[in-house]
Design a protein around this nucleic acid. Structure first.
Lengths: 217, 217, 217, 217
DNA sequence: GATGAATGAGGATTCATTCAT
DNA sequence: GATGAATGAATCCTCATTCAT
């Protein structure tokens, strides 16, 4: 028993019922711990949330950064960003859902820290789009709008993808990269190599045995 | 004072803090009513939520249905669906956010009813994609995935669009329709006419004076 | 049922078990109210305490001020201060005990407000001693120490006096005034008239039926 | 590390925040011990309290008994009782405060034992007053009331005296003895010798470095 | 000696809801 | 149509205490 187990249980419940809709007792029940015992591993319900959100965004940033490192062509960078994001979302759907939807549940320093991470990450996408428009013939009418559309599309994956489902993660990355390329009006030559960004399963992502997906029908 | 005011207040709070994170007293405070008085207009907190979700989905379906009625070409149908969805999302962002995110807060008959509406609506998109692939040369590798990507992209609008912002709703519809066409690999001839689907402001959508957007930074 | 009843119950319990030793449910039980219902009358447990402490100190100050108004001779002023303090303590023993012992349970603005009241009241005693020493032959070796000894002696009344006991309040005032005069080395001529300061029962002082005294043995 | 250190920490916290307001973890933190480790030295939080109260009352009784042993004149006995009590209070203010105020926190056998000690001690004062009235011209109108006034006055010392303050303990004893003599209407001849009763610092009295006095302002 | 882990009970406070007025 | 009063259940979190290590 340790922090990781607690976080997995928490993410599982938060993803299913939302942060506000989840009681600390629910989390406890999900790890097989008295609600009081949780407080050996965690200082506050909100800190528990903030912890997993930070892990998620930090890993996302790390993967994204790594994936575009040493790659010059903007279209290949874009494909890799999509691959990274989709890979992370598909491999850690619960954590990503929580990270995407529970900003409003944070306050004070937690909120600030997570918002900073998110803003930094989004800036990375914006930079790729900008250079693509400038030097690689991206046909983008409204850069900000395109960035939002791309990110919302990719974020969606965490809402419906189930590990072990019909599509493999590799296929998913390929398809979304293809869509992204079309959205910026560019035909890519190296889709297959670039989209397959390797991502990891986060320590806080609940295992498949959890019932996160029960209520989604 | 009437049901509409109560619903507006409720949507405003639900959109800002989530259903579980909103107290019935918060809703009351937002309409200037004692929490007990709310129960003259509403039978239950959950019913209040279910009511606005139903209104939203029913209007969405009505607009979508109307927009494609009498239109034969699949690409024009798709453009109109996008226009309808984006228009609704931009004109009723709070309601659409709530509708999109609070399925998990419903139970029993409420859940069933709303899920049925949603499934019907999504089937409509699927039908357009199917006929597009069959008869209009849509380049769609995976139909279900494309539908999800399209809908997630469009749903995203409700998360960041602010009425009176930089972009008019018409522009927004145009841009998103353009993106959608690219995603299905088709060049449209009548973007401008088809995308501008007329949508209404729902009775339950809170006015601009509300502070729904405060915490979104 | 109203705030006064709640305060009486609270004072009764606080006096018996201390503020920290009293649960909000205990207070509720003592008024015959669900613990949740208390929050219709009171915003916070600490505010409940602060309220009664302020009432007590304000009334004490009012009585003391009134008792010395228009009286010139310091010894008569001293006798009246003693009469006022002893009268208040005897008529409101529970409230006075709580006020005397629970400063440490207050925080922030509550603490500041009550400390200001207390300091103002003590300054009044000091002023009488000073003028007594200067103009009325008080034999006081150490003024501050004498003030502390006098006040501690008078405060003690609230710890053991029971309304309806052996001594009437009038007798008590007389005896304590006598002791105070001796302590400052002065023989008073008008003990009987001056000591009998009229005091009131506070709205928050619990009635005799309460079991405040149970545990004192 | 030993029982004494634990008791010192406990007294320090109890004096500052009260018994009920002090958590066992607070005590632990104050000795640099895990809360579980405290239970090697102590069987129960209440027993910890009872232990220090007993030490205090036993030492008080010992000092008082010793101080009047072999002294015949009631006035000299009274002076010595005052000297003993004031000396103990000034040298062990935290312990004496706790002992004076936390009777209500004891139960069962602990309560009985401490009440017996206290009653025995008070009886000693009463005896001195009685013999003073009978054989030494004490002008005491109400013996019980006088005893209470004397003891409350002396007990007060523990609430405001700080070791190393303006007054030495010797001075303090002298002043209080003087006040006591006046209260019983007798002029003493041997104040200086009799008042200077030697007292000890209890093993459970926290050192000056503690922050017991922080909140007293 | 010391501690981390664990827990049932209870801390203050808020919850959605009811009902008499 | 509106509200103040009331409540049982639940909220997050802390309590004193135990025990295996």
């Amino acid at each position: 028993m340790g922090l990781a187990e607690v976080e997995r249980a928490a993410v599982s419940r938060f993803a299913a019922d939302g942060f506000a809709g989840t009681g600390i007792r629910d989390v406890g029940r999900a790890v097989g711990l008295n609600s009081a015992s949780l407080y050996h591993y965690v200082s506050t319900k909100e800190d528990l949330l903030a912890g997993v959100m930070r892990q998620c965004l930090e890993e996302l940033d790390r993967v994204a950064t790594g994936s575009v490192a040493g790659v010059d062509e903007p279209i290949r960078q874009l494909i890799r960003l999509v691959g990274a994001h989709v890979g992370m979302s598909a491999q850690n759907p619960a954590t990503c859902r929580v990270t995407d939807q529970e900003l409003r549940s944070l306050t004070g320093a937690n909120l600030q820290a997570v918002m900073d991470l998110r803003d930094g990450y989004e800036a990375r996408w914006d930079a790729v789009l900008r250079s693509g428009v400038r030097t690689a013939g991206f046909e983008v009418t409204d850069r900000k709008l395109t960035r939002l559309a791309l990110l919302d599309m990719c974020n969606g994956v965490a809402n419906w993808y189930r590990p072990g489902g019909r599509l493999s993660i590799g296929r998913l990355q390929l398809r979304f990269a293809e869509l992204a390329c079309r959205m910026v009006g560019v035909t890519a030559l190296s889709l297959r190599e670039d989209a397959a960004v390797q991502t990891v399963r986060l320590a806080c992502e609940p295992g498949d045995e959890s019932d996160v997906w029960r209520a989604s029908a």
